[in-house]
Design a protein around this nucleic acid. Structure first.
Length: 955
RNA sequence: GGGCUCGUAGUCCAGCGGUGAAGACGUCGCUCUCACACAGCGAAGAUCGCCGGUUCGAAUCCGGCCGAGCCCA
């Protein structure tokens, strides 16, 4: 494997690492269900209403054996991953017949391993990608990795240091060999992790930022920008990392506030007059590079000092006192020493005063004092160390007037944590200003949308003040800068291929630029370079612009913004339509999950312990994707419990579905006689699909997953299954049994399809355990809500029924009735509609509330004796009690009364308010009036019950 | 210094102008009822950070304060 040498020849059309994860690849699809334990399926039936008889040609699979009682993810996940590979599930067509849905994977850095954040982003993407694929849209999710130049070299450097080897002591080739080895190792681990997560990537299009074609694209971009004058070389202030000895970009510097000491130094007057000028500094070690002392022109305190000369302490060099508006008069004493090579502000002031001499670097590339401007005894000392020694010397020389504690803004290199040394040096830069307008306009016009949209503000703000981007790095690992210098005429040539001789003077050979490019200079081409740019490739035509970028907002500026710049510049089009920012995962203490803090579990380990599906579900379910989310082990337990629930739901269905059932092609046609629960579950399913889709359209993944979760658990499992058991057992007649089987199968099968993009493995397994059509769930058509009928009345009616059931159950539990007892109950419905529903669904109430009878009371009829009452929105319920009303029950009634009369008072108060009557919309007014009536009625009834006091006997 | 986000039951969070403030974990009862105790049923638990304003009406909008976090200099 090693390098992707093939990349240059044709586009990759092979699994990148055969043998990497697929032990022997199985030839066909795996046998779906070959479980050994479990009960034998009961019953047989044929001619199922309204299913058609099974026809053998249609690939319908039968339940071959019951599922084991417990869900064990390990073997199942491996099996289906192999099946998907075998089917080349992720592979996008070369010539998609219809517009495609494209996502590029943010390429993980070969620096390290995947962390949970990657898994979160990938799970969200896989959800959308699988859904798109099932919807019949040609779908491409393109994987790849990033060489991550500087950070990988730093990682390898640290790794070698542990063995006592200094990277700096190795030759360039040795370093490259080391880094290559590291890359191969991590690439293997990253790819194995991606696969274990069940992510349906198109491995045939796998890319690497250093494969030859990609390198060529990077060179093309550089040369084109160079030609356009947007890439230039110049001596500028850069952020210098003295440990890694390279320049880094502004974004790679992390700012923090650190305590230090502010020294007030007395610079003696050059003419020998007593006293001197007080100059405050936190960096006394740079004193040797001073060329002036500056004060603000309006600063009256120092007016007399202007144009005089002072002596730099310790070296006695004479420097002028100058004025410059850039001086902050509130800092220290208002006098600033000017060290042009070691501070950006000083440099700017220096440039406005042409008479000043340019000093040498008094701090060299590795952060040590150097140059003949530095007294011999300090040369070679490290900055930190030198600060102490110089301070000491200043003190003993009597130059320190006083010192104060000071909070200093310090920039540290993201990679080495070394304090950044601002340094004047010759580097390559990208001119950003010409690249930003198209990008800002894209977001403003909505051509590119950010989710959540509130990040747009930070986006604009950054764009407005973006500085030129330093892209040269003085390291080994990376894309060489494609510039060649002529030793003879000094001409510099930027070219995609090394020129044989100097195009100016014909001299040969030329000297290549020794530096490499910032990693992001290749990453910013990712969405189109992976599709074949700069070639006019078919993939670019079919799959670009991409539809979605799912990434962390920590790289919004590093990557997202820059990709947009590159894409608009090179292709004149956006790189993607939607950008969805994944939240940041936190632990229970609210800390960011990070390797550094040691609070970040290894996702691969979790995955092996708990299964990919559980991990995926845990990441999506309680973790707001657009906010930051909390991740803990409780979350994983939750996920496991849910998956077990689904598992058992299918086991239940298996047990009640007869042999020989065909897959549900469409929803069963219900009739006038169909029971409420069948109408209801289909209507609920339909509504769930609608809401699910709506949530996903706005990338509200958490909400979408939550909707499905509660539908499955509370509607399907808790209610429908419980209610339909009677019918499924055949106790309500054969036609109803067949209809209920059909409804159950349809709902379950379609729900597994909906759930599949979230937890693909277990749903694939379960789908194969029930009648279905097709070879893989992953390839089954995406459900449409209108497959099931809309039936709002059924939904309302079921709420009424469950209110009754809940009320009666509560009375049972509150009065400690034996579970086996089934006392009679009465209801006085609050209205005719409720009465009608309850009358029609009486059997359902009896069964679910376990009451022996439910009789309806007339409006004026006295409450039955010996009963416990409860009053709800839908009516008064009475449950016969074996004994008299308990004090506990009386207390419950009193509490209910207090609550209701409180509400009533509030509502009446509102109604009495003329402002409310005049200004509130009529429907709100009406609702309030009805509510007041209802509350008053219920309070009155409770009062009746309380007044009746002791029941007269047993019902 | 500039900007952004978040403070809702013991914990995590939903709701973002009119619903008796949703759910999950945890807690407390009762059930090992023939898919599931990784479960079911029932119950308790919240002055929606504090102060003021706008409005007929505020958890929801505005201002201030207090607390937590993030980003940019």
């Amino acid at each position: 494997m090693g390098h992707h040498g093939g990349a240059a020849r044709h586009r990759h059309r092979r699994l990148p690492h055969p043998g990497l994860w697929c032990a022997p690849v199985h030839r066909g699809l795996p046998d779906p269900v070959v479980h050994r334990h479990g009960r034998r399926r009961p019953r047989r039936a044929r001619d199922l209403f309204p299913l058609r008889p099974r026809s053998p040609r249609e690939g319908t699979r039968l339940t071959s054996a019951p599922l084991p009682p417990r869900f064990e993810p390990g073997a199942i996940e491996r099996r289906w991953q192999e099946a998907w590979d075998q089917a080349e599930l992720g592979r996008a067509p070369d010539r998609p017949p219809t517009p495609a849905f494209t996502v590029v994977l943010p390429p993980p850095n070969v620096t390290g391993d995947l962390h949970l954040g990657h898994f979160l982003g990938n799970t969200v993407t896989d959800l959308l990608v699988r859904r798109s694929r099932m919807s019949g849209v040609p779908t491409l999710w393109l994987p790849g990795i990033d060489h991550a130049g500087l950070s990988t070299q730093v990682a390898v450097r640290a790794h070698l240091a542990k063995q006592g080897i200094r990277l700096e002591d190795m030759s360039r080739d040795q370093v490259l060999a080391q880094v290559e080895g590291w890359k191969r190792d991590h690439e293997r681990r990253i790819l194995a992790a991606l696969r274990a997560g069940g992510f349906s990537l198109d491995w045939s299009r796998y890319r690497y930022t250093m494969d030859p074609a990609y390198e060529r694209a990077t060179r093309r971009a550089f040369v084109a920008l160079h030609k356009a004058g947007l890439v230039y070389r110049g001596e500028r202030f850069v952020n210098w990392d003295p440990v890694l000895q390279t320049a880094v970009s502004d974004l790679e510097v992390e700012h923090s506030e650190e305590p230090t000491s502010l020294l007030y130094l007395r610079y003696p007057w050059a003419d020998g007059s007593p006293g001197g000028l007080l100059v405050a500094t936190v960096r006394p070690e740079t004193i040797f590079g001073d060329v002036a002392v500056a004060v603000h022109p309006d600063d009256a305190r120092h007016a007399a000092a202007v144009d005089r000369k002072v002596r730099v302490p310790l070296v006695d060099r004479e420097v002028p006192v100058i004025t410059d508006p850039g001086v902050d008069p509130t800092f220290g004493n208002g006098a600033l020493k000017i060290t042009p090579r070691h501070d950006l502000l000083d440099y700017e002031i220096f440039q406005r005063h042409p008479g000043l001499p340019m000093p040498p670097d008094v701090i060299d590339a590795d952060g040590r004092l150097a140059s003949d401007w530095v007294p011999e005894q300090f040369r070679g000392q490290d900055r930190e160390e030198a600060r102490k020694w110089v301070t000491e010397a200043l003190r003993s020389g009597g130059f320190v007037d006083h010192e104060t504690p000071y909070i200093h803004a310090v920039g540290r290199s993201e990679r080495s944590n070394a304090v950044i040394e601002p340094r004047l040096s010759t580097q390559w830069f990208v001119r950003m200003a010409p690249l930003t307008p198209a990008v800002v306009e894209a977001v403003r016009s909505g051509e590119v949308r950010l989710y959540p949209a509130r990040w747009e503000l930070s986006f604009y703000r950054w764009m407005e003040k973006v500085q030129d981007w330093c892209i040269s790095r003085q390291v080994v690992w990376g894309h060489p800068i494609p510039v060649y210098y002529c030793p003879a005429c000094r001409h510099e040539t930027a070219a995609e291929e090394p020129p044989a001789k100097c195009p100016e003077c014909g001299h040969a050979p030329l000297t290549p630029d020794p530096d490499v490019l910032d990693t992001w200079f290749s990453s910013w081409l990712w969405p189109f370079a992976t599709l074949g740019w700069p070639e006019d490739s078919p993939d670019l035509a079919h799959y670009f612009p991409t539809n979605l970028l799912e990434t962390g907002r920590d790289i919004m500026f590093f990557w997202v913004a820059r990709m947009m710049m590159a894409s608009y510049y090179f292709l004149g089009r956006p790189p993607f339509r939607d950008v969805s920012f994944t939240g940041i995962l936190r632990d229970l203490e609210g800390r960011k999950l990070s390797k550094h803090l040691g609070n970040s579990p290894d996702p691969v380990e979790l995955l092996h312990e708990r299964g990919a599906d559980a991990l995926r579900f845990a990441l999506l379910f309680p973790s707001p994707v657009d906010q930051d989310g909390v991740f803990g082990l409780a979350t994983l337990d939750n996920a496991r419990n849910f998956l077990t629930k689904v598992w058992n739901l299918v086991r239940f269905a298996q047990a009640y579905l007869p042999e020989g059932v065909d897959a549900p092609d469409r929803a069963p046609i219900l009739t006038e006689d169909s029971p409420l629960e069948n109408r209801w579950i289909l209507a609920r399913w339909r509504r769930t699909v609608d809401e699910f889709e709506q949530a996903l359209a706005g990338y509200e993944v958490t909400r979408a997953v939550g909707l499905l979760h509660s539908f499955i658990w509370y509607d399907l499992a808790d209610r429908y299954v419980e209610v339909s058991k009677e019918a499924l057992s055949g106790h309500r007649g054969e036609p109803l049994r067949r209809e209920t089987q059909a409804v159950l199968l349809f709902t379950l099968e379609r729900t597994l399809r909906l759930l599949h993009p979230i937890v693909p493995h277990v749903t694939e397994e379960l789908w194969h355990a029930i009648p279905h059509r097709g070879t893989l769930l992953a390839l089954a058509p995406w459900p449409r809500s209108n497959e099931a009928p809309d039936d709002p009345e059924a939904i309302v009616a079921m709420e009424v029924v469950y209110d009754a059931i809940r009320t009666l159950r509560s009375l049972r539990a509150g009065n400690r009735l034996a579970p086996s007892s089934s006392p009679p109950a009465w209801v006085r419905p609050s209205g005719e509609e409720t009465a009608e529903v309850l009358r029609a669904q009486k059997a359902l109430v009896l069964q679910q509330a376990r009451v022996g009878a439910l009789d309806f009371l007339e409006a004026g009829a006295p409450p039955p004796a010996g009963t416990a009452p409860s009053v709800t929105v839908h009516g008064e319920f009475f449950l016969a009690l074996p004994t008299e009303t308990t004090p506990a029950e009386r207390r419950a009634l009193e509490r209910e009364r207090a609550k209701l009369s409180g509400l009533l008072a509030k509502t009446e108060q509102r109604l009495a308010d003329t402002g409310f009557r005049d200004r509130a919309p009529p429907e709100v007014l009406k609702a309030a009036e009805e509510k007041a009536q209802d509350l008053a009625e219920r309070v009155r009834r409770i009062d009746e019950h309380l007044a009746a006091d002791t029941p007269t006997g047993t019902g």
